[in-house]
Amino acid sequence: MRRRLLLLAPLGAAALAGAGFLAMLRRMRTGRFDPRGVPTMLLGKPVPIFALPGFALPGFASAGFASVDLAGADLAGGRPILLNFFASWCAPCVAENPRLMALHEAGIPLWGIAYKDRPDATAAFLGRHGNPFTRIGRDDAGLTAIDFGVTGVPETFLIDASGVVRWHLSGPLTQEAADEAASMLRQYA
């Protein structure tokens, strides 16, 4: 009896560890667990205080969007906004652009922050792929991105009407993520 117990104990421990490992793998596959994921500290918190120079795109002024400087306080403007950190040199930003354009065409307010980019390169990028943003700030030094806890472009934040961060995505916007963002936006409208 004792011998059998001694034999079964390691087997049981191995089975338990295996089950835990499988559960971890499953959670990694469904995206509920990401060992490399950087936590979003801003969730449920107001956006950091920042003030960025605006970015003027040719044609912006005529469409009613002058080169307006972008400040943290502007994000608490009484309506939810999707804020996207992007750069012309970022390949995943090209990949997610059609989904951002679709959100823009659906009337969702999208603001952009150009991360460590040259204005002419930003203009060329938006001219080539389409501009989904109604307002753009220029984070040339990349310090506002650090205040947002951004680790790399693209990253997208959903900011509610009072300027509190409600949702965040690191990496390119997939179709599922875009749908999720749109439904969250309606929820906070």
Binding site: V38, P39, M41, I146, F148, G149, T151
Partner: peptide
């Protein structure tokens, strides 16, 4: 640092 990137940093 942890205010921005959590204990992960």
């Amino acid at each position: 640092m942890t205010a921005r990137y959590g204990d992960f940093v």
